[in-house]
Design a binder for these strands. Sequence first.
DNA 1: TTGTAAGCGTTATCAG
DNA 2: CTGATAACGCTTACAA
Lengths: 359, 359
Amino acid sequence: MGRQGQSTTRTPHRRPTLREVADEAGVSISTASLVYSGKQGVSPATAERVRAAAETLGYAGPDPLASSLRHGRSGVVGVHVEGALGYAFQDPYAVSVLDGLGQVLDELGMGMLLVPEPPGGAEHAARLVAGQALDALVFALCGPTTSALVDQVAARGIPMLGTGAPVDERVVQLRIDDRAATGELVDHLRRLGHERIAMLAMPLGPGAPAGPVTVADVDAATYPDARDRALAFVDRLGPDLPMVQSAGLSIDGGAQAAALLLDAVPRPTAVVAQSDLLAAGVIRAATDRGLSVPDDLSVVGFDGIELPWFEGRLTTVEQDGRGKGRRLGDMLRRLLDGEVVPDEEHPTRLRLGTTTCPR
Amino acid sequence: MGRQGQSTTRTPHRRPTLREVADEAGVSISTASLVYSGKQGVSPATAERVRAAAETLGYAGPDPLASSLRHGRSGVVGVHVEGALGYAFQDPYAVSVLDGLGQVLDELGMGMLLVPEPPGGAEHAARLVAGQALDALVFALCGPTTSALVDQVAARGIPMLGTGAPVDERVVQLRIDDRAATGELVDHLRRLGHERIAMLAMPLGPGAPAGPVTVADVDAATYPDARDRALAFVDRLGPDLPMVQSAGLSIDGGAQAAALLLDAVPRPTAVVAQSDLLAAGVIRAATDRGLSVPDDLSVVGFDGIELPWFEGRLTTVEQDGRGKGRRLGDMLRRLLDGEVVPDEEHPTRLRLGTTTCPR
DNA sequence: TTGTAAGCGTTATCAG
DNA sequence: CTGATAACGCTTACAA
């Protein structure tokens, strides 16, 4: 109580340490520590003395850094984000996965550290990971099949979790069945009588240009989810239907790539877009051309995000991003508990909307 | 080369330490350290021996935790996010700020740790911050005027940066002139001949319900940006024009609140929305009612985000989120360098689009 | 150029 | 219930 001359000399921010608190309280440093970790019994009286001393000195609790070093755990989970944040977070699906993961991490008292890997520079991410204490690394947003980070992180003994990529036995996966789900979409369109169906693929690899793709391109794709969805399309419908990839995972990118499909003659009667964002682009491109969805063109997407500005409801595959994120969090918890966690599969389901109708 | 029997015994993941590497290389531990910090001269020959030893033992470099403890810096910047991630990241403007900040942090080799503060539970964020080693905390996304975190973080001697909130002298601010910018929007509409202008405000506080608000409500607002924009509106146009707040910062929320304005008689001829997302909601609500924008209703927003599905261009105030984020990063750098950083102001500019026309 | 030694601030183990 | 003491893994004067 009373002034402590705090504003007079004020050495430039040397925080008091537990030892000083202990001295002030007239107890040993280990006793003081016990007060904070709250494990063993400390007599209420001494505990109170320690707290008072802490108050006096302005001690805000044990230094997380020292505590982490001691425990060998930082309480931080890295989340790999491919591309700039502004780019990756444009996709509500990606955000919903992070949201779910974040919920679980919150419960675990752990933090989420973003590990962005900018377009050209893997070394940035590598440098960050080298200097940052991570308890685990999650590839939540499905990037390339391989990543230079994997070796590095594995060497540190840090467990990794992914949603299909990078493909590596050291990365525990929570996959969806991209092929089966895409198959359901295609079957739905075929049941409606569509035959001239086109595919609008996500970029098959980093920096892929918008334009037509062949089956060979698909086979060589760097992104496994884009590849599997395209392969399922080819499996069901053969190699002769039009396929294009977009230059990015965005509405604009989708619209631009969709233009290639919609301006072709004969025009497809249905488009399978590999993501809802791309499907939104298809819808916009169609509308721009005076085509009505679904009357002139049926459109299906993938992911199951909300498109609040769209009156109507996209026919799509629900992935339940938040649920997937939560499940990732659950696997993470087990991984950190030292359990051996096998790969798992997350269910998806076809959701019928208003963007498809009979041919 | 050759097998090292890695898959046979494999003690459960005890990483080698620098001391073991030094022993293996036949040098002292400090010499080995020098090889990694790369400061002083180590003879190329010894350096090579150390590296070889590291390779042999599978040493992946100094433990970041120990290194951080020694340096007293964690290389982590906390970013406060109000509400669930899935909610906060819905706003492209918020994401763009984070994107810009992330760019600078990347250059600094620092990481970005998300510190979500869920709707009801400030103690979650508090617990996270208590257990996490942060070099700084940024309130990038403009939350409430006060935050319980501030005292706690200040006690740890961690510098804080904000964009208007929380209001506290210990938080260095990068502000925009909300009042002047809103004034420009209003003036623009008045020049076009509009008189019956309505305001659609962002939530004035956490969990605010959608509905009409009075000047008194505005004065008591918890979010300073929402308050200042509303006050500027009242200053210019008097207290008698309709004002509503939305229940959340989203297109849906905007549309719902906008309904209250558009169904009133007489209907306003122009709406000032406090964010572009809300403006998008107004446009949707208008369209739903068969009103044409701008012919039947002029709409202005705030922020300057892209609405890729909207043919046309919103009249709004450009905030250049990415630039703002980068500038926050720059202030952060100076703060971490120990400089005394004064509050700054970020410029905005009126951007004319296609959503306003003469009355 | 290399080695010695003293911490960084905690926590855990084990006596008392 | 409390107190020495030894780590945790690394960095950096300072000495050789």
